[in-house]
Design a binder for these strands. Sequence first.
DNA 1: GCGACAG
DNA 2: ATCTTGTCGC
Length: 223
Amino acid sequence: MIQYDAPQTEEQAIEIQTSFADKVITSDKLAYIDTIAGVDVAYDEDSNQVVGAAVLLDAKTLEVIESCSVVESISFPYIPGLFSFREIPPLLSAIKKLSVTPDLIVCDGHGIAHPKRFGMASHLGVLLDIPTIGCGKTKLVGEYQMPESQKGSCTDLIDHQTCIGKVLRTQDGIKPVFVSIGHRVSIDTAVAWIHKLTPKYRLPETTRQADQLVNRSLKDLLC
DNA sequence: GCGACAG
DNA sequence: ATCTTGTCGC
């Protein structure tokens, strides 16, 4: 795994982004997918603590096989564009606690649909050298046309005349999600997996399970 | 100057 | 992210 000293300033974080952005692989470089991990973080600003969690799902049944969570101190402020530096420390800790290395990781945030083409999913993927997909709830950059209301409809997310992701309707008449390449996954494969992971709800099952876990853990932590 | 701005 | 109950609808 790639290591670096945690940035202490915005400038240092930007340097890391710039030097790592060209390591992102935007084509399929993945083996057979047996397990998919979902990750998320919850905050308690009062105690300056964060809960990071990783849930492992069976790729075929979407059942949860394993859950791990960690508690750490908040180490970086929230700055749009540098968001990954805030969440990556607890996410790495949680993923390392899993008994197996996931074949794919779905992130709650963007991959290359980012001003520097190095969002949270790409950052995590490059550090671990594991295939990742970014699936955000709102856009960070780019322009798009709203996709048709039927589930499965999608349009391009464009930035500087380049397609950086897809706006995908995961349920009929429900607000779409923003899918982008994280690392070692093509955009078509990314969209196909998000489609498989959303049989019933707007967000991928991975994200939903990870979200529930961090919120349960945070609640337990405060009691 | 003003609006936008992943979680 | 988080503050936050009930309520309308399938």
